[in-house]
Design a protein around this nucleic acid. Structure first.
Length: 772
RNA sequence: GGGUUCAUAGUCCAGUUGGUUAUGACGUCGCCCUUACACGGCGAAGAUCCAGGGUUCGAAUCCCUGUGGACCCA
């Protein structure tokens, strides 16, 4: 028998040819004419090179979701997008060109950013394509396109008109490095070493000296009160008196308040605008007048007197020094302080009062909890991340940013009376450069306008992705068929941002949940379980790996390594060894390609046994695919193929398939069964390893692609699984015995076939050359 | 301080509702070109299932306490 397949190993080079075929024949094109399955694909952000290997693994799995749905007969909308708005590219551009954004011409700066993004984007698209993603690349979207940004602006205008947006001047998280306000969701916390400074405050009209410990002595000039715990006996006599701020010599009241911790520092706390979020709450509660001590440039303002103009850190050192010199310093302790920093720039957050736009979200929390409880999470445990976050929402969402590379806030102000006006939705507006579309002020009749210069928080864009892909506001019929989307796949670190904000915004705009299911993935970490980062030098570039081992190898590794929702380890060596399985599958197919395909036959016991085992695998895979947990089918298929089908069944029936010493009926039964098993395996593997399965499918079973086929369903067959253990153990026993006796595997041997294996006696005899 | 989660051979991981001898892979060590495959086959060694207690005829699995790690939040 000449095998039809000649090569002895799967060559990943073939993948490129197959990709071309898929593209030319438009196998994956979406039609909205039957039951749809819509994926709200995460548009990745091009933030640097190389793209994270964990992200590549993530997208490979999203593609498996798409292919699974297709093999269940659904019409799959699988958009591809790139998220291009936001801070990282601005910082990347500043660094690359050695410039400062706020000191550079705006359009020039935007061009530099766009070029950088194009560059990084090309690499990501290349990775996604070569992984065999069955998404819509022909018109992939960008969140900075006119079309996308006009949607963001239109949704803003809609909410503005409904009164869900307001402007307010309140203390805000401010990142002075990037020069913008940020939302609570963008703050990270880090334990940083800092100095706890013990300062001496004189109590007015008294000989008392009150010691106060603070990590922020530079805010002395913004101190408006001293608080002590009401249960702190050390200070009961001082409440109601006043204290003199050292160096500043201003007098502030001493009050009691439960938020002062007796154990921290001296137990007395200075309340300044604003050292932390507790200060904000206290200023509001106690009705204190705020003093702005830190400016937008991250330097002390004029209220800092001799220290004005200094950076916060410098001022802190200088003031500590001055206190020391004037004997106002008691001691300095080195402590680790949990410091809020900007997730993007890593700069410590300052809290500065600023006028910003807010989107109302506090009123929506209850509704979102309700929606969230109805979304099916995979795995279910990650629903908790959303629910915990909802418990923590205390303020509305500040949505304006003092940055350039983002969607512009579409507002013009009357030059005369400052009244804000929004334009008609449907167009992309750039108020910082476009002429005003508003002709006359509605309030004072003024005819001149000034455009808003700020942009939106990038989550304002990202949070309408389900609306964008379903052509909200543009194509009513398409929208009806594709919204809400079926599933939102994403990683777990952006549940409190992307996932939450999307539910919020889509609920506000459409009144319903944006999707039915959410699929939450963990992080890719290095082989020792550590986070990958450039500074650690443990970053793995996915592209060379895909090139070297092929997309299917990478995909099978991703499927068999990742348990949905849990972190997973990435190591090149592991990916490499995954390739062996494809080799195994290839060679099984090569062997079978020497036999004609037989559509049906009366089967003998050994064949019924393997078909029963196959049926078990079909059932297992089905439940794995239903949960979008590809770990289940990939490991089940690998074990079956390797350790049962190839190792035992094929060896058992090889002689029969060649027809030596068997009847023609027995022979046909084996060939039928071999093909039945292999074709079923190929179908089950198709969503995971689409290249090799399609190639083998077309070599062996069809002139059409495997990717328009349906999954095999479990059948009602007799259960023979009770024999599996006996068969594999008996085979092992024979092999061991031959080894003991120094025999080659084809040498004859005398051995008794156990009673429970009598049904398989003829095959076993032929397999081991037993008792000739 | 609160929450989520994890702990099983040198390494990674499976173990569904408790049920004989704990799964598989990588790695290690032997032997073997046996007409699909040396990117292979066969075999071997390797585990106090984190610790302690409880429930039970029976616990890796359920409960409690503790220890250690990861992540999130205040």
């Amino acid at each position: 028998m000449e095998p039809k397949i000649k090569e002895t190993t799967w060559n990943p080079e073939i993948e490129k040819r197959i990709l071309k075929q898929w593209e030319d024949s438009r196998v994956y094109e979406f039609r909205s004419d039957s039951e749809t399955f819509v994926i709200d694909t995460p548009p990745p952000y091009p933030s640097g090179r190389p793209w994270h290997i964990g992200a590549a693994a993530h997208y490979a799995q999203i593609d498996m979701i798409a292919r699974t749905a297709r093999m269940k007969g659904k019409n799959v909308l699988f958009p591809i997008g790139i998220d291009r708005n936001g801070l990282p590219v601005e910082m990347y551009t500043e660094k690359k060109h050695g410039i400062r954004m706020h000191e550079t011409d705006r359009s020039e700066f935007l061009n530099l950013c766009a070029t950088a993004l194009d560059d990084l984007e090309a690499e990501m698209i290349q990775v996604m394509k070569s992984l065999g993603l069955s998404g819509n690349f022909s018109d992939y979207y960008r969140t900075d396109s006119e079309k996308y940004r006009s949607l963001t602006q239109a949704t803003f205008i809609e909410l503005w008109k409904r009164g869900l947006i307001y402007i307010a001047n309140r203390p805000n998280n401010y990142d002075w490095i990037t020069g913008t306000t940020i939302a609570d969701a963008e703050i990270a916390y880090e334990d940083l070493p800092t100095k706890l400074v013990y300062m001496r405050f004189k109590v007015k009209d008294s000989a008392h000296v009150l010691t106060i410990a603070s990590t922020r002595p530079e805010l002395l000039c913004a101190c408006q009160a001293i608080i002590v715990n009401p249960e702190d006996e050390r200070y009961t006599g001082l409440v109601g008196k006043s204290a003199v701020i050292p160096l500043i010599n201003r007098v502030v009241p001493i009050m009691s308040h439960p938020s002062a911790e007796k154990e921290f520092g001296s137990g007395a706390v200075m309340v300044c605008s604003y050292g932390d979020h507790n200060d904000v709450a206290l200023f509001r509660e106690l009705g204190l007048q705020e003093i702005v001590a830190i400016g937008k440039n991250g330097r002390m303002t004029e209220v800092a007197g001799p220290h004005s103009g200094l950076k916060v850190k410098q001022a802190r050192e200088k003031i500590t020094e001055d206190l020391q010199n004037q004997a106002l310093l008691e001691k300095v302790e080195n402590i680790n302080h949990r410091t809020p920093i900007s997730e993007r720039s890593k700069a410590p957050i300052e809290i500065i009062p600023m006028e910003e736009y807010y989107l109302k979200q506090r009123d929506a929390v209850g509704k979102i909890k309700e929606i969230g409880s109805k979304i099916a999470f995979h795995p279910p445990m990650h629903k908790q991340i959303l629910m915990n976050w909802l418990e923590n929402i205390t303020i509305d969402w500040p949505i304006s940013r003092r940055r350039f590379y983002g969607t512009e806030i579409p507002i013009w102000y009357c030059k005369n009376c400052s009244q804000p006006h929004v334009p008609e939705p449907g167009k992309y507006y750039r108020p910082w450069q476009d002429p005003s579309p508003i002709q006359q002020c509605l309030k004072c009749g003024g005819k001149e306008f000034v455009g808003e210069e700020r942009t939106f928080d990038t989550w304002m864009d990202s949070s309408v992705s389900p609306l964008y892909i379903s052509r909200y506001g543009l194509d009513e019929e398409f929208f009806k068929k594709t919204y809400p989307a079926t599933i939102r796949p994403q990683s777990k670190d952006i549940v409190r941002t992307w996932l939450y904000y999307t539910i919020l915004r889509c609920e506000q705009l459409t009144g319903i949940s944006p999707w039915k299911e959410a699929w939450i993935m963990g992080y890719g970490v290095d082989e020792h379980g550590a986070k990958m980062s450039k500074s650690k030098g443990n970053v793995i570039d996915p592209l060379p790996i895909i090139d070297k081992f092929g997309a299917d190898t990478f995909r099978f590794w991703s499927a068999s390594e990742i348990n949905v929702g849990y972190d997973f380890r990435c190591s090149e060596q592991k990916i490499e060894t995954t390739k062996k399985f494809l080799s195994k599958l290839w060679n099984v197919s090569r062997f079978l390609s020497g036999f004609p395909v037989i559509k049906s036959a009366a089967t003998v016991p050994a064949d019924r046994w393997i078909l029963s085992e196959l049926n078990r695998v079909v059932t297992e895979c089905k439940s794995g695919f239903e949960d979008y947990n590809f770990f289940v089918p990939s490991t089940s298929l690998r074990e079956f193929t390797w350790n049962i089908f190839a190792a035992h069944y094929i060896e058992m029936v090889k002689g029969r398939a060649y027809g030596e010493g068997f009847t023609e009926e027995e022979r046909e039964s084996s060939i039928f069964t071999l093909h039945k098993v292999l074709s079923t395996l190929l179908l089950l593997l198709a969503p995971i390893t689409p290249f090799i399965t399609d190639y083998l499918w077309q070599q062996l079973y069809s002139d059409r692609t495997i990717h328009t086929e349906r999954f095999p369903e479990p059948e009602e067959v007799e259960d023979w699984s009770r024999h599996t253990k006996a068969i594999t153990e008996f085979n092992s026993k024979v092999w061991n015995k031959k080894k003991e006796q120094n025999l080659s595997l084809k040498d004859p041997i005398e051995m008794e076939i156990p009673a429970d294996l009598q049904e398989f006696a003829k095959d076993l005899k032929a397999m081991h050359n037993l008792n000739p």
